[in-house]
């Protein structure tokens, strides 16, 4: 060592670096990006075909629908609630939308051109309206009948599944799809499909409202301390109604996304998706106790979920392991939250 001055400055630098590292490590999105890079590296080294545009497309196509559910779920979770009905709403909105296009507009899978496009726009409105309706029903059960969100949304989940089976006889309803238009639009937005970009746009808007506007602030405030929110003059019931309606509406949008992907409204097309959405939210760093969560975290959480899903198929891991890996991710995310909390206290 040349002189003591240098040693001191080296010491301070290393302390600063350590502090910075600590700060970065306790930042959920840094961790998530790190996990993402690690996953891509591992999957890519085992199966080089994983590092391809086709894989990215596969991952994003799945992400596009579930991220809509996960974004709605993020708001609900931040407000201190949970919405188990979103998966069932995907099926119900797709089925009712397809049923409307086929039986009211009299369009079938052979419809093309502007007729099909118009039909799909109507279908989109119907789909979102169905989702919002279920969301409003959730809000009524929670606000008026004072049923806890878990039970309220569990019962609407069951009802939505039941109705979609009744309407469809349990079978997919094939409606118009207008693949010419879709592939023409996809060609313009290459390499991303327009539906994925649509999802990205929607979640960007929701993200701005969550993190920059009064709507988002009240969502955090209610989840953080309902009593304080009420005392500050916030109409908690009115706000929660908006939150659940938004979650339902986004699920309806996801219903249309899946409809377009399958070319049919299928009652089982959202089966289990509420759990994928909740997993994305938790991996993204939101707390199921309310008050904590970032939309960016959820977006990355969903991306990680589907990277794992595609990756495991690509490297040929037995399908049963997928659930185990996702479970480990969730456990790690929750543990990371605990660590951050104890860091903060110290």
């Amino acid at each position: 060592m040349a002189n003591s001055k240098q040693a001191t400055s080296a010491q301070t630098t290393s302390v600063a670096v350590a502090d910075r590292l600590k700060g970065m490590l306790s930042n959920q999105s840094t961790i998530l990006v790190g996990v993402m890079v690690l996953l891509v590296a591992v999957f890519g080294s085992i199966e080089p075909k994983f590092l391809s545009a086709a894989t990215m497309n596969n991952v994003l196509t799945d992400w596009g629908s579930v991220v809509l559910l996960a974004v709605g779920q993020t708001l609900v979770v931040i407000s201190g609630g949970i919405d188990l009905s979103v998966g069932a709403v995907v099926g119900l909105s797709g089925v009712i939308s397809a049923w409307t296009m086929v039986n009211v507009l009299h369009l079938d899978s052979t419809a093309t051109g502007s007729k099909a496009t118009g039909g799909l726009l109507v279908g989109l409105l119907v789909s979102v309206a169905v989702g919002v309706s279920v969301g409003l029903l959730n809000a009524v059960l929670i606000n008026k009948l004072k049923i806890v969100p878990f039970i309220a949304t569990l019962s609407t989940m069951g009802a939505a599944l039941g109705f979609s089976v009744i309407i469809s006889s349990g079978m997919p309803i094939q409606g118009p799809a207008n693949y010419e238009l879709i592939s023409a639009m996809d060609a313009k937005t290459n390499p991303f499909s327009w539906a994925i970009l649509g999802s990205a746009l929607v979640i960007t808007i929701v993200g701005l409202f969550l993190h920059k506007s009064r709507f988002g602030l009240y969502t955090y405030a209610i989840g953080s301390n309902t009593f304080a929110a009420r005392a500050a003059g916030i109409s908690v019931e009115k706000h929660l109604t908006k939150v659940y309606a938004l979650s339902g509406g986004l699920a309806g949008l996801a219903g249309m996304y899946v409809y377009l992907r399958l070319g049919a409204g299928s009652p089982s097309s959202g089966t289990g998706r509420e759990l994928d959405a909740i997993a994305a939210v938790v991996i993204g760093g939101a707390s199921l106790m309310g008050g904590i969560g970032r939309l960016w975290g959820t977006v990355l959480g969903a991306l990680i979920l589907f990277t794992v899903q595609s990756g495991l198929i690509m490297i040929g891991v037995a399908p049963d392991w997928k659930k185990v890996v996702v479970a480990i991710l969730i456990a790690a995310a929750v543990a990371a939250q605990g660590l951050q909390k104890s860091n903060r206290r110290s």
Binding site: A88, L161, G162, F163, G170, S268
Partner: peptide
């Protein structure tokens, strides 16, 4: 459809 069906029992 058994799983959905079971859940659909609410309706």
């Amino acid at each position: 459809f058994r799983t959905i069906a079971a859940l659909g029992a609410v309706a």
